[in-house]
Amino acid sequence: MKSSIILNFLLPAIVCSTLYGQGNYEKQRDDMVIHQIKARGVNDKNTLNAMKKVPRHLFVPAGYRSKAYDDRPLPIGYGQTISQPYIVAYMTELLKAGAESTVLEIGTGSGYQAAVLSGIAEKVYTVEIIEELGLAAKKRLKTLNYKNVEVKIADGYDGWKEHAPFDGIIVTAASEYIPPPLIEQLKDGGRMIIPIGSPFNVQTLMMVTKKGDKISTKNMMLVRFVPFTRKK
């Protein structure tokens, strides 16, 4: 009797709600891309497609799933956050990675940024210093079948020498210095993107470019501050 109830009523209900849930997340993802990302000027097709595909809700703690597609960063534990969707998209666009690019990410966190990059670049290497976070991200990326992403638990300061040079490097944890090994592991003409700001307070992005011996930076102001203009 019990099994028939499960088979006839509960199971279909669970399947339906799961399917509905997925559909709902897809809709939220589409909205996120249109209203949060495209509307703010991110137009790179590869980036937009990747952002549409990656199920962000699976990269946030279960308690925050309903807020996964909100226009905000979210806590993932260990004093770390998953960046606001727009920041992820903007950083990805700035990196200008292509289908043949090799990209290094410093600070895997939840693995979301690596997942987005995996849809664009040929190979993504990502390094996380906090073991618990790194292992969780590794498992998550494997479960979700991101085959071109490799995760290493190590000190990001050293980069990943064995796979250098990189076409692009994304540093997702703000630091008071830019490690020289990372600059060395950047290809000539390559780009490094670094956010400057505290966990919930990403304020600006720094783009570091390498041309021969000359290293230059470009400070990219974020749209977040546009409304902060006083009326005269």
Binding site: D70, D71, F200, Q203, R224, P227
Partner: peptide, 11 residues
């Protein structure tokens, strides 16, 4: 209002 968007809590 910027808090509601999830940013700038420390600013």
């Amino acid at each position: 209002s910027s808090f509601r968007k999830g940013g700038l809590p420390f600013l």
